[in-house]
Write a protein that binds this DNA or RNA. Structure first.
Lengths: 117, 117
DNA sequence: TTGACAGTTAGCTAACCATGCAAGTATTGT
DNA sequence: ACAATACTTGCATGGTTAGCTAACTGTCAA
């Protein structure tokens, strides 16, 4: 039960749910994009990502100074099916998506890939 | 997003997840069974049930002095598919199931029905 | 009507958690 | 080596929440 509980706790925060929605849409994002999208400090974003990683919902990849995040390969399929459709229609999430597009702070970030939403 | 967030928050508590697991297994339970299964006061159990109802995960039915709870007809199917199998195997949940069987405080309670786990 | 029982609500406390700032680590470029 | 950038971690703080007891509402029985 603890593994599932950790995943539920990780998902039951507004900002972390926004992060998951963004990763469903964008395939891969770097930390700076996430903190800017949320409008929180880099430290706070980093904590959220650590929590999502420990819950086995997100995987990270380090490349030079940057850390890139994507949904874990073991991200529960049923959760994806549950969240994908409603989140893709949510106005707040849509706003996040267009905000991410405009973030050019880290030009290595190329959030183009299969859209999972 | 708020509706989903409310459901996630409602599920992301150990005791409330135990309640949902019990309802997946037992079809219908009364308040006294739930508080006794959890080992918490009736007041605490009542608060948990109120939260689950407001999240639209549980429906209640009043019969005389008793209130019976079951999963809402709109309980998300994907969530059920996600939780059912792992929870049914969880030792803590199994212990809850056998504990519920022995509760005879309210003899109206007849937790026999289709086992959804 | 009075008492007992089942459940809810109010008020409180303690624990948890999201956040920011500041300091630390790691990597790159000059 | 030094500075700058990207992220992480320690610590303090304000807000949220699970839990209790006590008081309240509603129902049934004597």
């Amino acid at each position: 039960m603890n593994a599932i509980l950790d995943q539920l706790k990780a998902l039951s925060d507004r900002n972390r749910l926004r992060i998951v929605a963004a990763l469903l849409h964008a395939n891969e994002l770097c930390a700076c994009q996430i903190s800017e999208m949320l409008g929180v400090s880099g430290a706070t974003a980093s904590r959220h990502m650590g929590l999502l990683i420990r819950a086995d919902l997100v995987a990270s990849r380090k490349e030079g100074r940057w850390v890139f995040y994507k949904l874990s390969p073991t991200f529960p399929a049923h959760v994806r099916e549950w969240l994908a459709s409603p989140l893709s229609k949510d106005p707040e999430i849509k706003k996040d998506q267009s905000r991410v597009k405009k973030i050019t702070g880290c030009n290595e970030c190329d959030p183009t890939g299969p859209d999972l939403l």
